[in-house]
Design a protein around this nucleic acid. Sequence first.
DNA 1: TGGTTAATTGGCTAATTTACCAAATAACCA
DNA 2: TGGTTATTTGGTAAATTAGCCAATTAACCA
Lengths: 106, 106
Amino acid sequence: MDTKTAGKYERRAAVIKALAHPSRLYIVDRLAEHEHCVNELTALIGSDMSTISKHLSVLKNAGVVQDERRGASIYYSLRIPCILNFFKCADAVIQAIQKEQSALAE
Amino acid sequence: MDTKTAGKYERRAAVIKALAHPSRLYIVDRLAEHEHCVNELTALIGSDMSTISKHLSVLKNAGVVQDERRGASIYYSLRIPCILNFFKCADAVIQAIQKEQSALAE
DNA sequence: TGGTTAATTGGCTAATTTACCAAATAACCA
DNA sequence: TGGTTATTTGGTAAATTAGCCAATTAACCA
């Protein structure tokens, strides 16, 4: 694989990698409804706030979310809504696996 | 987050995680055109065959690809074509980042 | 200014991932 | 059967990731 092609797939992988964590997917799903501050997401997920903050920074560095300070809080929102298509397809894969497994169980 | 919800996002993350590697994304892109055996993919990518084989096993375990032995070779093909939507969206994120960076550079 | 809440950063450890090599399996052909 | 090609598996070292705690930064209010 030549360097240019490798770069293309590395950039794509960087975006997808940023999404590849349950908490981060959950965050994306919540932000798809409306913006949330770190505090709210922390309460929803139940991890340490520093952990959530780091997840948000991963998503932000990848270009998936954006943040905006308003007063003492920092509000995060989805930058690219097409991210939600990932869910549909991931769920289609999951369904296919389940179908296969129940077919094998017969 | 309750256990059921956590499970849902863990399953989704497992699928997305399987895609989160440049070589695996490249493989998916090649398989979107037509099936390939391990040998062919190894030649295209240029890593050790054992490395490619392990990448394929990650994709297979996640339900993204399927394999079929024909003679001495094992042919891999895409199981769920919607995976390709990931690329479009990942590229949209990448474009947005680049736009932002060139705006900042002004 | 001092206290309080919101968020990020640094440090640390445990767990996971990756890539290569070497060895094992599987299928084919002479 | 023996040799060759295709693929997978096991082992190992290096790199990355995740999560928590403690400390720091930022904004607000009394």
